[in-house]
Each structure stands twice: as structure tokens, then as C-alpha cells.
Write a protein that binds this DNA or RNA. Structure first.
Length: 1107
RNA sequence: GGGCGCGUAGUUCAGUCGGCUAGAACGCACGCUUCACACGCGUGAGGUCACUGGUUCGAGUCCAGUCGCGCCCACCA
């Protein structure tokens, strides 16, 4: 112990190093977490011991690339929840894993193979190629796992899964089998987003829209009237002219005029009439099977029962009426409508009112075709060249287009239409072209325009009520907007699902209301192979003779038979099928199919191996899913549907721990999670979404390197305020001299602002390589141009906070030595700062609990920040400095409060709190009545602090607030008068305030550097007013300058006058006293009278100083 | 085209039920190397809460509209 005159201990007695260096502690802390098994969840503690479960399924990151700050945010928030609930006594399972991300991963691997080895996928055998992708996956799965571990994620790492591992594959297989068996998976000919370059179907979200400059082409279709065979024509629309003895005759303008067609009379009577269609894609006219117009179009009546004949092809196609068609408007009409505030379809200005309908090559036309039972004629090969081998037979004179690419065909069609005439004497078939800028879907893989393409695909019937309806019924009725909101019935997961922030419920709801069946097949090699064998019905039936329907299911579809085999291990059956010439489908499943099963597959459904027994019963449904808003549709929806469909209604009450869940088959099963928390999108400094593939993704490990993990997490948590976007501007850090600098920006090929691949440091001028160039593969780090890490001053606040916490703990440790209090310390007997601090702690614990329950992460961070820095450091530690060494009771409070703060902070800043907890627990701590913080070896499994509400003391908070106000006032006077910081001055106060100051036992003196002096203030003292009473400071070194003093007091006076005027206006308002709540009126009155008292005191003081 | 979000101090952002004399961090100014911490301490300066109108005793907050920025979904006549 240092000398008796020293109020606190010497700094060198601290057991902690002088400075917190994250890199010196994080690895060893992490190793202790892992070896202790602190994060390993045991379903038995739930199922047998009745402990409350709390589970979270990680959104499995794609194994395509390293994680960026967006992932760091998402996973930090999950970790905050996991750690907080672990400390609150829940049995926590945070399930980790990664996603095979079919198309994305295959694409990056293909690109790399092409770049590094000059090879294409087709240069490999399928197994060989898959092995290469597997190698990539192994590499990135390891990288991602390391990143997640580094940022402190408290996942149950022993249970880590991958969407294509054996357990997950079993779930995919079983789910597919049941959905197939129940008629919810079917083979369909549908329009898909076809990438003609890679020849695969793409999901809607794999299509990128790009603005393209193009043209509207105006083409003329001659009008004809079918004179014989009209019935057959109407039954099977769009017949070739040559077929079935169809007889037809040209329709002349004269006939049209007779039918009342507006404007027909301006044409020669005996010439053949035509209609003009407008299209951006003239080459698709080869597949047209109708021309449509709006039923209210003024021309519609006069055209009824007429047809068009496609030039060159010769096909006769009907004129049909459909409300989808946009009627044309003139420029003037459009402007008028806009003036009236009416929306005008931009297409209306270009439209002719006649829409060519090509069901095989346009999604909207496909829908029209279905409505009108039109023929579907596919005129393209899979490579998007014009072909007569894929469903187009009535080629006629159009054979000159066959074999052309779609681009060549477009030119050729235009050229031919320009060169030909409607009829011998008419004008050309080509009318005009108009420039038109529109957005066109492009493949995110090959960047060529998407072709809507008719092909055979597997579909999941998500529009079935057992899936879609179940998902909608899962929603919390309070978050539903539509009419049937109130009709949610009881049972299963109905009404159990809610969104945070609430507004995202709308996204979920409208998605389901507009849902279409889900195309689940992909023409890829990387993924879950579709477990269906197809061949002729007879051979399929023969091969399945005597095979139980539990092993395989047969669906027949006209000439084809499809056999779904339940188990990959059913080798005998598979051999029999292949012997019967049935071939396995070459396609794989959409990646989201396995993702949709994540909450089940990771828990071992349907047949858990021994080490996974009980997981499903214990941990599904999970507590919360934390994810990004753009996958509400892709993922959240599908998990909800599958979980509810595949798990039985009674779950988890089902007792069996084995495979034998019967599917409820009604979609009445449990929700996969009760809450969905949508976190913000992390953007870069330019407001662009952060993404490694764009080259603007920041590796969280760069921030870990520069600021430490806890700093990273603190700042990320602070940003989670419920907004949609978070901007995280980043710099580069020079690898040579450590200078942070703003990179030089360039625009990437995709139009994003990214750091230039090569940078040079503004300080040392040496070159470096930025992340963008590295991820795009355009440049590699070398010895003289090493890679610059990202850095950001945004994280300084977090680092500073950790340092402050470290230092405060060091200080506390120095002062916690010494005799412990003999028994339990009772709050009522403590000093004001102690009672105040305990009150603040108790209140803050309550507020933090509320914030966590509502996913108010930023508020949680702010609460614990203020508690620690503002209350504990700025006031409490300073207040107890004079007394703590001599008061065992005060030491008990100090130790208990700091330990509580460390625990409250642990979910956000796990590393530094773990180290500090280790140091703090070596100091014996006397128990404190009302504050329960049981001993624990590690803070990550320590109990959340429990404070008795009685510790919350309004009285202590009120008194301490007065003390703080007085101290601040004294500091202001000192600062205004330029008193030396270390100089002790004298405080003169009236008897009542002096009593209070004495009652506060030296705290005011310690915090303000002013000692209470007896008697009235001497001449020349600096006066001030506290709570309307005179007080003063004297002994300020130099004599007080009366003119400066007048100046200062006058400023205070004018501010007071302003306040008083404002308060008087408010009270003078006749409505205020009547209608405002009484306590507010009273408060205003009190404020006014206090300000008036202060003003009068100041005025008196000023007059004493002499005007 | 449909939906959602944002606009508050130089910067990044809080601001819940309308009660506000609008806060924080960083930055800035002044003072302080005080025996936990200069990644610190103390004291300050800094705001037409995008704009217009409305409701209200009272509007940053609610309503209507305007302008600007961004995101998601849909869309190739």
C-alpha cells in the first residue's frame, strides 16, 4: 500500500498490462472458448432438464468468396443475441454452416479455370469438374469459418454443416421425394430465363436488368378472313395456312370500311388491309400465334373474326381481344393525362394497339396464350439461333432465317420486311422504326441478354395452399394488411411469425400473394442432382414391379415416365431402373431448395445420426432468423413453407427422436423461426451495396487488424438502428508506412465506383495494390507492391471504448485490494455515489433487456456505453477516489458494478470483457444485497446480472443530479475565469446548500476542486446562482476583473430573459393550461419561477458590481 | 410501373407515446501531460430538423403535397 497521503494506489500495482492490444489476447481467449465447449448445445438440457431453448440458424454464407462487412454486421448481431441469451440461462444453439450456392460457385470456378488453365467446363468429365468446384469450396469454407471465428461468433462449431454434405443431402432427398409423391413437384414446359451462352435456366434473381438502347419496329401483318375450316381454326388457333384445307381470302380496306373500321376509307378500296404491330424483337414474329388488341379499342368490333397472315411464314393467326394490351395515346393525350395526374404507360406512346403474341418467347405473351388457348411455337434452338427443329414446322418461305443467330435474324427480318409488300400493289411490310431505351434482362453469369425460352423444367407447386397458404397463415395477424388477416386459425405455426422491423412483413406478404410456381431445376453440375429417372412408361412400370411405394414413386406424363427414388443408397433399385433404360435427370436443384431445408437439415431431419438425436425436437422452431431484406422472398418464404409442410403438426411434442415423422401434408407444421430480423445493407462511401464481387467489399479482418474485433463489433452494433442502409466509408492503409489514405477511384465495368487496382501512398509515394484489383484478378500483390488493407476511422470510437474499459478496470483493480467487507453489503447504508451508481446500473439493465427483446441493437450499445463512460467513469470513479481505499463497502460496490458492466458488455465486445473478467474474478468480492452476479470461470457463460428493482432509487438519482449540476456550474465558472486546473478554490454557499455539500461528504470538493468555505463570500469572489440561491467562488488567484464579470453575468442574464419569455408565452397561451397534461403545466410553472429567481439574483449581483 | 427507406451540427448518425431549451460520436476552438486512461480530462462554438401547406395549446415527430438521394420487386409492345 502506498503512503497514507495518497488517495489511490500506484499504477504499477495493476495486474493488467498498461495497454490493451487486441491481437495479444484474441487468439487465446478464442482457444479457451473452444476448449471449454462453452458454445456446444445439448438438446438433452432442453428435452430432459426443461431448460428454455434459444436457437439461431446462421444464414449460410456462399462459398464463393471471403466475407465482407455486411456479413460481419449480420453475424455480429446474431452473436450478440446468442451470447446475451446464453448468459440469461437459455440453452443456446447457434448453428453454423455454408451454402454451396450452385450457380454462383460454379461460375467463379469456371471463370478461374478459364483464366488460369484456359479450360472450359466441357473440357472436364462431370465428376472431374465437380471435384474442382469441391476444392474451391473447401478453400473458401475454411476461409469463411476462420473469419467468423475471428470476429467472435459463438456458433456451435462442432455441428457445422454444408448444404451439400451427407446430412443435408439426405434432407433434400427426402423433401423432394415427399413433395414429388404429394404432387407438389411436377415436370412442366414453361418459359424460363434462358442463358443461351451457358445454356442453363436462371432464376429471376439471377437476371440483371440493364438499360439498352434499341428500337421499336413497326411491322405490317396483312389481314385475311378464314372462309372454310373456321371452326377448327378457332379450336386450334394459329394454324398453318396449308394445313387442314383452311381456306381464306384477303380482307380489303373497302371491306373494313364497310365493317366500320375507323380510317379505312383513306386507303384504296380494293387493296388488302393490314394491321401494324410494334415490337422491339422482330425476329420473334416467326413464333407469333395471335395478334391481340384491347376489347375497348374502337377498332375491335370491326375486326372481330378476322385473322392475320404472317408474312413469309404464311401462318394464319387469329385476332384476339385481351385487356392486357395497351391502347395507343397521342403525345397530346399523354400530356393531358399527366397534367391531370394520371399515370400513362410509357409504352402507350409507342403502341399501335396491336400486340403480336409470341407465347414461346415472351412471358406476358405466354400468359395471354394460356388465356386464349393459343398454340405455342418455339422458333429457337437452345443457343438462341432460329431453328425449325424445336417445335416449329410451318416454316413456309421463312426458311431463309433458319440457322441465324437472334441478332442476325433481327437484321434479316427487317431487311425482308423492307423489301416486301403487303400485297402486290401495297406499301412495304416495314413501316418505320423509333428509338427506344428500355431495360433488358441479362445473365449475371455470361452477361448476354436472357431469352425467355420454352423448356422442360421441374417445378415446385408453391402456389398450392399447403405451401403458399401455410406461409401466409404463419404471419402474425397484427402484421398482415389484407382482408383475411383476422382469419389466422390456431395450431401449428399459425400466426407465430413476426418481422422486425415490422415493415418487412409487407414484403413477405405481397410476395406470396403474387407467387408463381418455382422452377427448381438448373442445368448445372454443381448441386444436388435431381433424384428422378425417366424413360418409357412400360419399362418404368416393369422396373418398379414389386417395389414398395415408400421406395420410389412413378409419375406418368403421356409418353414419359418419371421415377423418383427416395434414397440414394437404394442401389438395387437404381440398377434396375438403369437396366430398364431409364436415365437419371442430368440437372441439379436450385440452390435455394437445400437452403429452404436449412432449419431442418442442420438438425438431422429426417434421419439424425446418433450425435444429432433430439436436435430437431429441441431447437426447431428457432427463436430468430437474422438476414438481409433481399432474401425475404428467396429464402425466408421457402423455409417457412417447407418447415410447415414437412414437419408434423404436433411437433415438437412428437416424442420419437428418430426418423419417423409423418408429414402432416397440410402445411400445418411449425414455423422455422418466430422472429425475422432484417438487418441493414452495408454500403460503401459512395452508397453502393458492399459486395466482394463488385470489388468494394471490405474484409472484416482488415478492421480486426487495425482496430481489434471488439472495436469492429461495437461500431457495427451502434449502426443497427433499424434503417435500411448503413454507409461505411473506408480508406486504404499504406502497407509501407501505415498511413491511411483515400484511394483513387475508378468506375468498374459494371458501372460501380471502386478503388483503382493500383494505388500510391500520398505520404511515402510507394505503390500498393487495392482489394478491387485483387478480387477482379486483374492485378496481384508483389514484393514491391503489396496489398493495401482497408481501414476506416469509423472504428476509432470502438477502439477508444475498449481502451477506456481496459484502463478503468486497471484503476479499479488497483483499488479493490484490501480487506473485504465482513458481510453482505446493504445498499441503504451506502454513500450517495454508491446508491446512485447502483440505481443507474439497475435501471440500465432493465432498459438493455427491453432493447434486446426488441432487436434495438444500437440502443443497447448506447445504453451500455453511457452507463460505463458517462456514469461510471466520468462521475462514479471520480467521486469515489477520495474514499474507496478506506471503505470496504465502497470497494464491494465498485467491484460488483464493474463486473456487471463487463457482463452487460460481453455480448457486444466479447474478447476484452473475457480478459477483464478473468482479472476481476481474482479479486475477492464481498456480496452486495440485491445484485446477483454469481461467480463464473468465463464471462461467456456467466449469468446476466440480476438487480433487485429496489436498487433503483429515484431519490438517489435526484440528489446526485443536483450534485452534478453544482459541480458543472463550478467548473463553468472556473473555466470562464481561466482558473488554473489544479488550483483549489473556495466555495461560498448559503446555509442550505452548504448543508447539502457537507452531506455529500467531499464529493463536490473532489469533482470541482472547490472547498466549501465558511462564511460569506469575500469581495472580489466570482458569483454564480445555483437553484436560485447565491453562491460564489473565491481565491481564484487573480482578482476578479469587474468588467469581465459584468460581461459574463450579462450574457447569462440575457439567456435567462429569453428562456423566461418563452416559458411565459407558453403559459400565456389560453389553450395550454386547459389542454396540456397538468404535470407538464406544473413543470413549466416551476421552471419559470426558478428562472425568475435566478434572474433576480443575477440582476442584484450586477447592480452590486456597479453599472 | 409497384413497394420501401432516407434528407437533423463540418461528417456519420440518434431522436420510441407529439411536450425539445433538438442529442451523441468524430472533427473544430480554448485550457490541461492531474498518481486509470492524450485512444484521455475539462470548457466551448457549431442546427431555418430538405421545402410548402395543414392538424394541434404545442410539430424534427402526425397528415397532404413538392424537391433530392437510395434500395427492393416487377418489366424486353
Amino acid at each position: 500500500m502506498s503512503g497514507a497521503n495518497s488517495p489511490t494506489a500506484r499504477p504499477d500495482s495493476s495486474p493488467l498490462p498498461a495497454k490493451y492490444k487486441p491481437s495479444e489476447h484474441e487468439a487465446s481467449v478464442r482457444a479457451r472458448w473452444e476448449s471449454s465447449g462453452a458454445f456446444h448445445a445439448d438438446p438433452l438440457r432442453v428435452l430432459r432438464d426443461g431448460r428454455a431453448p434459444y436457437s439461431i440458424f446462421i444464414p449460410p454464407p456462399n462459398v464463393t468468396a471471403r466475407l465482407h462487412l455486411g456479413h460481419a454486421l449480420n453475424n455480429t448481431l446474431q452473436d450478440v443475441l446468442a451470447r446475451a441469451h446464453r448468459m440469461k440461462g437459455f440453452e443456446v444453439l447457434w448453428m453454423p454452416g455454408t451454402d454451396h450456392a450452385g450457380i454462383a460457385t460454379q461460375t467463379v470456378v469456371e471463370q478461374r479455370l478459364l483464366k488460369e488453365e484456359g479450360k472450359r467446363r466441357t473440357d472436364f468429365a462431370r465428376e472431374e469438374f465437380v471435384a474442382r468446384v469441391q476444392a474451391w469450396k473447401d478453400e473458401y469454407e475454411a476461409v469463411i469459418t476462420d473469419q467468423l471465428k475471428a470476429i467472435g461468433c459463438s456458433c456451435d462449431w462442432r455441428r457445422q454443416r454444408f448444404t451439400m454434405d451427407n446430412v443435408c443431402a439426405g434432407a433434400v432427398r427426402e423433401a423432394f421425394f415427399r413433395l414429388f409423391r404429394d404432387g407438389l413437384i411436377y415436370r412442366g414446359k414453361r418459359l424460363v430465363n434462358w442463358d443461351p451462352a451457358t445454356q442453363t435456366a436462371l432464376a429471376d434473381d439471377e437476371v440483371e436488368m440493364e438499360e439498352v438502347d434499341g428500337f421499336f419496329y413497326y411491322l405490317r401483318y396483312p389481314l385475311v378472313q378464314v372462309t372454310d375450316g373456321i371452326d377448327r381454326h378457332n379450336q386450334k388457333k394459329a394454324l398453318p395456312a396449308t394445313l387442314a384445307g383452311l381456306k381464306y381470302a384477303p380482307v380489303t380496306w373497302g371491306e373494313l370500311a364497310a365493317r366500320g373500321y375507323p380510317g379505312a376509307e383513306s386507303h384504296p378500296d380494293d387493296e388488302q388491309a393490314w394491321v401494324t404491330v410494334a415490337t422491339t424483337r422482330p425476329e420473334t414474329y416467326l413464333g407469333d400465334t395471335a395478334v391481340a388488341l384491347h376489347p375497348r379499342d374502337p377498332r375491335a368490333a370491326s375486326l372481330r373474326h378476322l385473322s392475320c397472315q404472317l408474312p413469309l411464314v404464311g401462318r394464319i393467326i387469329p385476332l384476339i381481344e385481351d385487356e392486357y394490351v395497351v391502347m395507343p395515346v397521342t403525345k397530346e393525350q399523354a400530356e393531358d393525362a399527366e397534367k391531370r395526374g394520371e399515370a400513362v404507360d410509357p409504352k402507350a406512346r409507342f403502341a399501335t394497339g396491336f400486340l403480336k403474341v409470341t407465347p414461346a418467347h415472351d412471358p406476358n405473351d405466354y400468359e395471354i396464350g394460356r388465356r386464349h388457348d393459343l398454340k405455342i411455337i418455339n422458333v429457337m434452338a437452345p443457343d438462341a439461333s432460329i431453328s425449325d427443329k424445336h417445335g416449329w414446322t410451318d416454316v413456309g418461305d421463312a426458311h431463309l432465317f433458319v440457322g441465324l443467330s437472334r441478332e442476325e435474324a433481327r437484321k434479316k427480318v427487317i431487311a425482308e420486311f423492307k423489301a416486301r409488300h403487303v400485297a402486290d400493289s401495297n406499301g412495304p411490310l416495314f413501316e418505320k422504326q423509333v428509338e427506344y431505351r428500355h431495360s433488358v434482362g441479362h445473365s449475371y453469369r455470361s452477361h448476354v441478354p436472357i431469352e425467355p425460352y420454352l423448356s422442360d423444367q421441374w417445378y415446385c407447386r408453391v402456389t398450392d395452399d399447403r405451401l403458399r397458404g401455410a406461409a401466409l397463415r404463419a404471419m402474425d395477424p397484427a402484421q398482415r394488411s389484407s382482408a383475411d388477416a383476422g382469419r389466422a386459425t390456431k395450431g401449428g405455426g399459425d400466426g407465430a411469425l413476426s418481422f422486425f422491423p415490422e415493415r418487412f412483413a409487407r414484403t413477405f406478404e405481397t410476395w406470396h400473394e403474387n407467387l408463381r410456381d418455382w422452377c427448381i431445376s438448373r442445368q448445372l453440375w454443381w448441386g444436388h442432382r435431381i433424384p428422378v429417372w425417366s424413360g418409357s412408361p412400360e419399362s418404368a412400370r416393369r422396373a418398379l414391379e414389386g417395389v414398395d411405394s415408400d421406395r420410389a414413386v412413378l409419375h406418368e406424363n403421356g409418353e414419359a415416365a418419371f421415377v423418383c427414388v427416395r434414397s440414394e443408397g437404394d442401389a438395387a433399385l437404381i440398377r434396375a431402373l438403369e437396366a430398364a433404360q431409364l436415365r437419371r435427370d442430368p440437372d441439379v436443384l436450385d440452390t435455394w431448395f437445400s437452403s429452404a431445408l436449412w432449419p431442418m437439415s442442420t438438425l438431422g431431419w429426417p434421419a439424425p445420426p446418433p450425435e444429432m438425436k433430439g436436435l430437431l425436437e429441441a431447437f426447431n422452431p428457432s427463436a430468430v432468423l437474422a438476414t438481409a431484406r433481399e432474401i425475404i422472398t428467396l429464402w425466408v418464404s421457402r423455409m417457412t413453407m417447407f418447415n410447415r409442410y414437412l414437419l408434423p403438426e404436433g411437433h415438437p411434442a412428437t416424442k420419437s427422436g428418430d426418423a419417423s415423422y409423418g408429414s402432416s401434408g397440410k402445411g400445418g407444421g411449425p414455423v422455422p423461426f418466430r422472429h425475422v430480423y432484417i438487418n441493414a445493407v452495408v454500403q460503401d462511401g459512395h452508397g453502393q451495396r458492399m459486395s466482394k464481387s463488385l470489388g468494394n467489399g471490405v474484409d472484416p479482418l482488415d478492421i480486426v487488424h487495425s482496430h481489434g474485433t471488439d472495436a469492429l463489433r461495437l461500431v457495427l452494433v451502434q449502426t443497427a438502428t433499424g434503417t435500411q442502409d448503413v454507409r461505411m466509408p473506408v480508406d486504404l492503409v499504406c502497407p509501407h508506412c501505415g498511413e491511411g489514405f483515400e484511394p483513387a477511384w475508378i468506375t468498374s465495368p459494371a458501372g460501380y465506383k471502386v478503388a483503382a487496382p493500383r494505388q500510391s501512398c500520398p505520404r511515402c509515394a510507394k505503390p500498393s495494390v487495392s482489394a478491387y484489383g485483387v478480387s477482379s484478378g486483374s492485378v496481384k500483390p508483389t514484393d514491391d507492391a503489396p496489398q493495401a488493407r482497408n481501414g476506416s476511422t469509423r472504428f476509432d470510437a470502438g477502439r477508444n471504448f475498449c481502451t477506456k474499459l481496459w484502463n478503468a478496470t486497471r484503476f479499479a483493480l488497483m483499488n479493490l485490494e484490501g480487506e473485504a467487507a465482513p458481510g453482505a453489503v446493504r445498499a441503504a447504508k451506502l454513500s450517495l455515489p454508491d446508491r446512485w451508481m447502483l440505481s443507474r446500473l439497475t435501471r440500465t439493465i432493465r432498459e438493455i433487456d427491453g432493447a434486446i427483446a426488441q432487436y434495438q441493437f444500437a440502443q443497447y450499445a448506447e445504453l451500455v456505453y453511457d452507463l460505463f463512460w458517462r456514469d461510471f467513469c466520468d462521475w462514479y470513479l471520480e467521486a469515489i477516489k477520495p474514499t474507496v481505499r478506506s471503505s470496504p463497502e465502497q470497494r464491494a460496490v465498485l467491484g460488483a458494478v464493474l463486473e456487471s458492466i463487463v457482463r452487460l458488455l460481453h455480448p457486444i465486445a466479447p474478447y476484452v470483457t473475457e480478459v477483464l473478467h478473468g482479472a476481476l474474478r481474482r479479486v475477492p468480492r464481498a456480496p452486495l444485497e440485491g445484485l446477483l452476479i454469481p461467480e463464473s470461470e468465463q464471462v461467456c457463460v456467466a449469468a446476466w446480472p440480476a438487480a433487485d428493482p429496489s436498487l433503483e432509487s429515484a431519490d438517489a438519482e435526484r440528489s446526485f443530479a443536483r450534485l452534478q449540476a453544482l459541480v458543472e456550474q463550478i467548473r463553468q465558472v472556473r473555466s470562464a475565469k481561466g482558473v488554473e486546473p489544479r488550483r483549489r478554490v473556495k466555495l461560498h454557499a448559503g446555509p442550505s446548500l452548504a448543508d447539502d455539500v457537507r452531506g455529500w461528504a467531499g464529493v463536490v470538493e473532489a469533482l470541482s476542486g472547490a472547498d466549501l468555505a465558511p462564511g460569506p463570500a469575500p469581495a472580489g469572489a466570482a458569483p454564480f446562482v445555483f437553484e436560485g440561491a447565491d453562491a460564489a467562488l473565491s481565491d481564484l488567484a487573480d482578482a476578479v476583473d469587474p468588467s469581465a464579470e459584468r460581461q459574463r453575468l450579462s450574457e447569462s442574464l440575457s439567456k435567462l430573459e429569453k428562456d423566461i419569455a418563452a416559458l411565459e408565452t407558453r403559459l400565456g397561451n389560453p389553450g395550454y393550461a386547459d389542454r396540456a397534461p397538468p404535470h407538464l403545466v406544473q413543470q413549466t410553472r416551476d421552471q419559470l419561477s426558478q428562472k425568475i429567481a435566478e434572474r433576480d439574483a443575477l440582476k442584484l449581483r450586477l447592480s452590486q458590481l456597479g453599472a
